[in-house]
Design a protein around this nucleic acid. Structure first.
Lengths: 269, 269
DNA sequence: CGAGCTCTTGATAGGCATCAAACCTCGTGG
DNA sequence: CCACGAGGTTTGATGCCTATCAAGAGCTCG
């Protein structure tokens, strides 16, 4: 289970026990499509996806719905939720999911015991913001077929990119793709079929099969730069002084090496 | 000048001198439309808008352009730029602007001398992310007239909302509105005229006049929640332990009171 | 004061939404 | 083990919203 591996590398053994125990103790099963937090709720916790995928979405008063983010296993979400008075968006499971819901008091306690967590959180938020910007560019500027292809590319790469099988998990229905790209489900279907015809990309049984990623990427004009993969080690140099610049801490070296952070961010992000 | 007032309230007198001196020393005039940082550049600095407005944008290989954020005077931008290896988007002035460009070394020094800055930065990033989500919902789900009206509402409220004059600065051309909303300039023009007809909203000489904000907001189904105005004082309670949870710092009270932070965030954000 | 943006307006076309319905798949229960 | 139902996918017909192309008038900034 990749999630466990991340933690093994991220934290000191003692810290890891605390963190894992906390997540395990707070794990919740969420039925597919069920809300985890709802727009307007008071924020009480933050969340870590353990299994399955989650979505952030924003719903307009008349029911129109926009997915504004997809969260894969291992990803943290809801830090922003944690600092505001009321949620400005909702968080829900895609299909069936398991999510750890950690309350404020417990999180504060964890942060005190696992100082390196805050760096990870900051990096996680910044990369999520970068993804958000790329989605904006997609929805605002790309054509329907480019948007669908681009989303496929992103999901593919965020799960580790090309493998022997040429396949990856894909837990979104065509309706979800529509809600994420600002298209109707009907039109998404036509684009999916078009992609199948043009580059053999197959969507089915919650899997995406991509015979030639290069072909798909070409249709989407996909460039993975915005995911900042392999750059996570930079936070050991940069993010730490940025967010903890008091002399005492600048002097102290991070407890976790680049290796550990790199592992974390490489997974699902 | 509001920007100066913010700093007066934000920092201890000694800190303020350092911060202001730093910004003043690093102030740059940017000609309208000129890039401040460009996609692909190595990040070397972060930025504070002093006068005029700035835009973050993402340009696709074929020239299509999407504005992904608008920054008003007093706003900080580029923290994300600061932690990644290469910029995934560009930052440019809208019309003529004055921007402080603070280098990494100097920023680290400032953060050590002005511990409260990091809280402000975190809050600033989180609210920027919330705005980004709302824009996603706009571009993905709202009709053309709703998008234009919604952007007008946001700009209006971010500058302080209703005043006697019923007017606010508006430094975007109709082309900019198009690039921010995913519409063509021609269609934006038609929507602007439609809004003028339907609720008297006038756009001209870099000003937006809104006889009845309620009418405009109704067309856009605008709800200012996502701007989290008036919640800034919460970061004194929440963000601080979240990002600086070491026992030493949890014990220490923030040096700046709620008052100061509230002031900062109320302006242009 | 002039060049270059910016705004305005009209005509035309196309991409995507909408509406409707059939078919398929898969989990569930008899 | 088969039947059932809900959700997901596929397909067709139609129309609207918005893009595109073109060109003139009005600003504004250097």
């Amino acid at each position: 289970m990749p999630f466990r591996e991340i933690l093994n590398r991220l934290l000191e053994p003692g810290e890891r026990v605390l963190w894992e125990a906390s997540l395990a103790r707070n794990a919740r099963d969420i039925r597919r499509g069920a809300d985890i937090v709802r727009e307007g709720d008071r924020p009480l916790s933050f969340y870590v996806v353990l299994e399955g995928w989650a979505q952030k979405y924003r719903q307009l008063p008349d029911g129109r719905r926009q997915i504004v983010g997809i969260f894969l296993p291992g990803q943290i979400c809801g830090l922003d939720l944690f600092t505001v008075a009321r949620h400005d968006h909702s968080l829900a499971a895609l299909r069936h999911a398991s999510v750890a819901e950690v309350g404020r008091a417990e999180l504060c306690d964890l942060l005190q015991r696992c100082p390196n967590l805050s760096q990870i959180f900051c990096w996680s938020e910044l990369v999520a913001a970068a993804i958000q910007r790329e989605w904006m560019a997609s929805v605002g500027q790309r054509t329907a077929i480019e948007r669908v292809a681009h989303l496929m590319c992103e999901i593919f790469v965020r799960q580790g990119g090309e493998r022997a099988s040429g396949a990856c998990d894909f837990m979104l229905t065509q309706r979800h793709i529509g809600e994420a790209t600002g298209l109707t489900q009907v039109h998404v279907n036509r684009m999916v079929r078009e992609l199948r015809r043009r580059c053999g990309a197959e969507l089915g049984r919650q899997q995406l099969r991509v015979p030639s990623f290069a072909d798909l990427a070409a249709i989407a004009s996909f460039d993975a730069n915005y995911l900042h993969l392999g750059e996570a080690d930079r936070i050991a140099d940069l993010a730490y002084p940025l967010f903890d610049a008091r002399p005492e801490f600048v002097a102290a070296a991070p407890l976790v090496g680049r290796e550990g952070i790199l592992r974390l961010v490489g997974d699902g992000l």
